[in-house]
Amino acid sequence: MSTTAADLLGPAEIRQLADKLGVTPTKKLGQNFVHDPNTVRRIIAAADISSGDHVVEIGPGLGSLTLGLLDTAGAVTAVEIDKRLAAELPATAQWRAPAVADRLNVVTQDAMQVTAEDVAAPTALVANLPYNVSVPVLLHFLATFPTIERVLVMVQAEVADRLAAEPGSKIYGVPSVKASFYGKVKRAGSIGRHVFWPEPNIESGLVRIDRHPEDQRSWPQDAQTREQVFPVVDAAFAQRRKTLRAALGGHYGSPAQAEEALTAAGIDPKLRGEKLDVTDFVRLAGVDVAEE
């Protein structure tokens, strides 16, 4: 893919913008700015963005990825908590991508506080997520916006591995199950440290999620179902080395009641949580167990 309307930011432009705004990247906000145009192009290509998409971007920073998204998507909503960065983003779009700058909408907000009223029916989520809140933010957006069909996010490599882990893996756990509640999760590549300013101490990874079509899953992705399933997932992995019978004892009231629920769901009570896939957890959460 090659850009046409947008002139992407390189290291010199990133420093120029940062100096203009008096911005010093902070660990608190997880700010590491991408300064490599080829990485931006790679992310957008991996997300399969087209002119029919309304993309929501979280933490656009100085606008590196935003410019590439404007060049490809029909509309882009950028959610930025830093008021200085949010205020500058439209000017950057006019400077580097004047032909498509009108596709941009900026929401100055904490991503975890964003509601469906703030962003109108996005079809895709593409972002370089702040590493310190990547999983909660990802799950919040998947829950809040059922219109999101595809996700392509850059996160810490270790987090990317956990999100995409399969049942039975040592790193399979709560993030793996909760992400797969919404869609098919896979690793979509690795990103080196040198494409960022400042250069982080950790490697990054790309994760893609394709939402499960309604006719290909056996559960609704609504709040009620989520509130049934997610506490069971949390309990199953809270004490990884315990069998499900023991680990879920607190959730169901006793190990005996947990065993009753597991048996009713067709799950061996002696298994551990890492052996169950999301369909198992959904089935288990739907079992009614009488109180003792």
Rank of each mutant, 00 (worst) to 15 (best):
T108H: 14
A111I: 07
M112C: 03
M112K: 10
Q113R: 15
Q113S: 15
A120E: 13
A120W: 12
A121P: 03
T123M: 02
A124H: 14
V126A: 04
L129F: 05
N132Q: 15
S134K: 02
V135T: 15
V135F: 10
L138K: 12
H140Y: 06
F141M: 07
L142V: 04
L142G: 09
A143T: 13
I148S: 01
R150K: 14
V153T: 09
V155P: 02
E158V: 07
A160R: 06
A164N: 04
A165V: 12
G168S: 08
K170T: 12
I171F: 06
I171S: 13
P175Q: 02
S176V: 02
K178G: 01
K178M: 15
A179P: 07
S180T: 14
F181S: 01
Y182F: 15
K184Q: 11
V185C: 06
V185H: 10
G189L: 02
S190T: 15
S190E: 14
G192L: 04
R193M: 09
H194C: 05
F196R: 12
P200H: 01
N201T: 15
I202Q: 12
L206W: 08
I209W: 00
D210R: 14
H212S: 00
H212Q: 01
S218E: 15
P220D: 02
Q221E: 12
Q224G: 13
E227Q: 07
E227S: 10
V229K: 00
